[in-house]
């Protein structure tokens, strides 16, 4: 297939275009059916009183007024934001790991597999695994801490420790994926640039700071964006590890709260309204990120 097929207008290309449309039809129809249609419906449902058992009733802005005055909504939103501390921590660790793995050393492939393993495991399995690891007394984490003389807390049952515990798990889970991407990006940093910098007298740190880091910025950007979107939608781990929203609602994320309202408390209309607000927030944050990114783009001329 040459590039001309897309711009051609003659009979020769008509069938090609038809085939082309046919081939893109499945994803487009899939998107329309399973993403766009629910989105449009949610635009309506957010303005209704809807218990999920019978038909929705229009209720104007009632759901949004409730939301503004709902302490649990704000708390779960705050919890979700707090848990995102894990994003930069995870990126820093991944970068360090990628730098280490980017050198010729024996067993590199094995390490890559080990770091990537959590990324391909089921979230439910990981959550159950960590639930045990974080157990107050005989959990692995506290046993390790005990080995260095620290008396670890009961992670999942204490208000102040449940979030750090979840961050720890999140970082561990995400590290493989980001390390792999960083590694790929590191390997594509042009050798010529590094050599030029060396000739200019740049040491290892300066080369890292002014050549490698900027070359990695597209990957960092991608990871931050997906990390924030993923973090804003954290649910399964919470529902398995702290099924009631954690000590003093300390680990209830916004999506968990949406689920709880929609499926436990017959407030599907309210839940839809919250989802809509969450979707809007994610969109805005991502838009801001794209804007900031476009202002300091780094290119090799």
């Amino acid at each position: 297939m040459s590039a001309t097929t897309t711009t051609g207008t003659g009979d020769l290309h008509r069938s090609e275009r038809r085939w082309g449309r046919l081939f893109i039809a499945p994803p487009v129809i899939g998107f329309a059916l399973f993403a766009l249609a629910p989105l449009l419906f949610s635009l309506y449902a957010a303005f209704t009183h809807w218990n999920g058992l019978s038909a929705p009733l229009f209720s104007g802005f009632a759901n949004f007024r409730t939301m503004a005055g709902d302490p649990q909504f704000w708390q779960s939103l705050g919890n979700t934001l707090f848990l995102m501390i894990g994003v930069p921590i995870g990126l820093a660790i991944s970068l360090i790991l990628a730098l280490a793995l980017n050198r010729q050393m024996p067993g590199r492939a094995a390490f890559r597999v080990i770091y990537y393993l959590p990324g391909v495991s089921s979230v439910a399995a990981i959550a159950i695994l960590w639930q045990w690891a974080l157990n107050g007394d005989f959990g692995l984490v506290n046993q390790l801490l005990a080995a260095v003389g620290i008396d670890g807390p009961n992670w999942l049952a204490e208000k102040h420790w449940v979030k750090p515990a979840l961050i720890l798990m999140g970082v561990w889970k995400g590290i493989g994926f980001s390390t792999l991407l960083y590694l790929a990006a590191l390997q594509s940093v042009p050798r010529t640039l590094l050599e030029a910098a060396m000739l200019d007298g740049a040491g290892a740190w300066l080369r890292f700071r002014h050549v490698i880091l900027p070359m990695l910025s597209p990957v960092t950007f991608f990871l931050v964006v997906t990390g924030i979107i993923g973090g804003a939608q954290m649910f399964a781990e919470i529902n398995i590890m702290t099924p009631t929203g954690g000590p003093e609602f300390g680990s209830a994320t916004i999506v968990w709260y949406i689920w709880q309202q929609g499926f436990q408390n017959l407030q599907l209309g309210y839940a839809t309204a919250m989802s809509l607000v969450l979707g809007l927030m994610i969109f805005l944050v991502t838009a801001v990120q794209f804007y900031l990114n476009s202002r300091n783009i780094f290119t090799v001329e």
Binding site: A157, K159, G245, P247, E248, F249, Q264, N265, L266
Partner: peptide
């Protein structure tokens, strides 16, 4: 009652 949420609220902050 119509929804059980009120009772859950009793236990949310009880630990202290």
């Amino acid at each position: 009652t119509y929804t059980p949420e009120w009772m859950d609220a009793f236990f949310t902050n009880i630990q202290p």
